[in-house]
Design a protein around this nucleic acid. Structure first.
Lengths: 179, 179
DNA sequence: TAACCCATGTAATATGTTACATGATTTT
DNA sequence: AAAATCATGTAACATATTACATGGGTTA
């Protein structure tokens, strides 16, 4: 039970992995892993221990098919998406409810507790973070034009969120206000 | 080995839990759990199976102390942060490297693969997501003035990021472009 | 008094992390 | 020839999820 053939919605990592396969065409689990490992977001480590079992799961559910290939001496497997895989992936992607979710932003989490941080340390922290964001480190290179655009939009978004929040704090100084 | 007294950096969830305790003062693990469970971000489910062991870990590391309280018939434990807990928490919060990380945004992940989605479904998806974001559902109520501000800022910026990205896509239609 | 919330916690399971192991091919 | 990279995968461990179990207090 639990999963007759394809059951259950995809997790975010599964959706991203399937997306990579659909974009790249037949590719090795290693390639998927490397994509995550070298991506600018460090949230997904792209460890072998995560990706190989994940691929096996998707194959078992009939969303991916694997074909061994030994043309080079290397023992490689090329995986590609099945029609069921594409369908499940599309359903995952167009889930607006999940898309609208705030997800998980380390900056937002920290700002949420900012009133507990001594003013000077807070200011130093905000300045340092703003600096890193402004540098726009680790922008992904890609042949796809929208990928760097997406990176840029989000980097700018977070930088301006930080600036806006810092400004708000300056206007309403914590403690010893007169209201 | 592994952790003499407090060793290792805090995870995001541990940081948030400690933050809650520092803000609220002595409180029950249940209160911590409920805070996560009812928070607007569904990313942290706030399950008992996550929070109770987490609190036990923090107590074991000397970052929290627990005091049983049976004044009501109920068997409750009140936890509060130790000085070491506060120090570890501050170090966690002012880590600008982690703060600058993109974290994990379900919308961004999906837009990343948007060129693989049939145009009509993509448009419908973007419209639906924009609607949910605009409605600003599940805004947190709080006595702290900056909490709803933070929520509002992030919701607005994500909505405008979505709009900006959709606009870019319209300008450069995928496939059958002429250049 | 039945239903619900407060409050604790565990069990089975799923999934991810770091670190290790193995071997072929390519680059220096 | 040595080092790096491609490519696979496992082992031990950490952490989270869902679902269950238990019981006191509060509200309809």
């Amino acid at each position: 039970m639990r999963q007759g053939v394809s059951r259950q919605r995809l997790t975010e990592l599964e959706g991203a992995a399937l997306g990579h396969v659909l974009r790249a065409g037949a590719c090795t689990p290693y390639a998927i892993k490397e994509t995550f490992r070298t991506s600018p977001a460090r949230f997904w480590s792209g460890s072998a221990g995560a990706v190989y079992p994940l691929v096996r799961r998707l194959v078992a559910r009939g969303l991916l098919v694997a074909k061994p290939d030994k043309r080079d001496g290397r023992a490689r497997r090329f995986v590609s998406a099945t029609p069921a895989g594409r369908t499940a992936w599309l359903a995952w992607l167009v889930d607006a409810d999940r898309a609208a979710d705030f997800g998980f932003d380390p900056l937002r989490t920290r700002l949420f507790y900012s009133e507990l941080v001594p003013p000077r340390r807070l200011r130093a922290f905000l300045a340092e973070t703003a600096g890193i964001l402004a540098a726009g480190t680790r922008a992904p290179q890609s042949e796809l034009p929208h990928v760097p655009v997406l990176h840029a939009v989000w980097a700018r978004l977070r930088a301006s969120a930080l600036a806006e929040f810092a400004e708000t704090m300056d206007k309403k100084p914590r403690r010893r206000g007169r209201g």
